[in-house]
């Protein structure tokens, strides 16, 4: 009697055992394609692609910011609007660790770690690993490396001010746009307000590299169109996937398409009768319904300003 298997016998395994014995070397039979698995694969492939792109963007940004500021006599406290703008824009996909990397790279190139400072990095009085430094709080012991990162404490402060604003989440996992705008500590604020847009412009999506990517993009576009049509048929707002379709939240990695400029929220013009119902400026739906029934016009909901925002 052959040794008895300790593994649980499933009916499927039992029935295919003979077949397996015949063609042990054959590649496993193709599994039926499961749409959900396929979606998951596509989803992960897209994240992987985005990750590769973000990585390359960050490295190219470091290459560029190594040479900043563009003028050798720039003043880090009053940067030129174009340098400041480019710095703020290039650094958006950075995580704090990437930013530390940029500082290290500038130091290797003998530059002050703060991107908008043209001066060479500081030089410690000796080559010892720990250094005594005179500060306003008396003599302190500091790592030599820290001492040689910046040309001055002022630059250290300005650089740190940038770092604390950086998003800890990798840019390829961030929702919607890359992230928020980064502010700088500058003395010539007025110049920058004139020159800089309040929000950084979204960089244009890179052109598809080959036909295969184009095909994929077309397929995704077609899918989005189909979903939009379906949504209209169902009486939903286009761009918002219904809950049924939501098992893979693909809309989170969709590029933002701005159809018209967002407008700030405003109260409906005739809202005097509702003001007592408002909670921090928002009028609950029940109160609005009551009001609308009174008005008896079926125009669009004026409160629906958020459809201009990314879905």
């Amino acid at each position: 009697m052959p040794p008895k298997s300790i593994l649980k016998k499933t009916p499927a395994a039992a029935s295919t055992q003979t077949a397996v014995a015949v063609a042990a070397n054959a590649p496993p039979p193709p599994r039926a394609v499961n749409q959900r698995h396929l979606n998951t694969a596509v989803h992960h492939a897209r994240i992987y692609e985005q990750r590769k792109q973000v990585e390359a963007d960050i490295l190219d940004a470091v290459f560029e910011l190594l040479d900043f500021p563009t003028s050798p006599d720039a003043d880090p406290t009053r940067p030129s609007p174009s340098d400041a703008h480019r710095f703020r824009q290039a650094i958006v996909p950075f995580q704090p660790s990437d930013y530390d990397g940029l500082i290290e790279e500038r130091n290797i190139a003998d530059k002050c770690g703060y991107t908008l400072c043209p001066r060479p990095k500081g030089k410690a009085p000796s080559t010892a690993r720990k250094q005594f430094v005179e500060t306003s709080k008396g003599v302190q012991i500091v790592d030599r490396k820290r001492l040689e990162m910046w040309c001055s404490d002022d630059c250290a402060r300005r650089a740190l001010f940038v770092k604390v604003q950086l998003n800890e989440e990798p840019a390829w996992l961030r929702q919607g746009d890359y992230g928020t705008e980064i502010d700088l500590m500058v003395k010539n604020t007025e110049e920058h307000h004139e020159a800089l847009p309040l929000r950084l412009k979204k960089t244009a999506a890179p052109a598809p590299k080959d036909t295969e990517e184009e095909d994929a993009a077309a397929a995704w576009a077609a899918r989005d169109d189909a979903l939009a049509d379906l949504a209209i048929e169902r009486g939903e707002t286009p761009g918002r996937l219904s809950k049924v379709n939501k098992d893979l939240i693909t809309d989170k990695i969709k590029e933002r398409v701005v159809k018209f400029p967002p407008t700030p929220p405003s109260l409906p013009p005739q809202s005097s009768g509702q003001s007592h119902m408002a909670i921090e400026g928002h009028v609950p739906k029940s109160a609005r319904d009551a009001e609308q029934a009174k008005d008896s016009d079926d125009e669009d909901d004026k409160q629906d300003w958020d459809k201009a925002l990314p879905g």
Binding site: L59, V62, F63, L66, E104, E105, I108, A109
Partner: peptide, 9 residues
């Protein structure tokens, strides 16, 4: 001894 992005570039 210190090779960074500058050398890589």
């Amino acid at each position: 001894e210190n090779i960074g992005m500058k050398n890589l570039r």
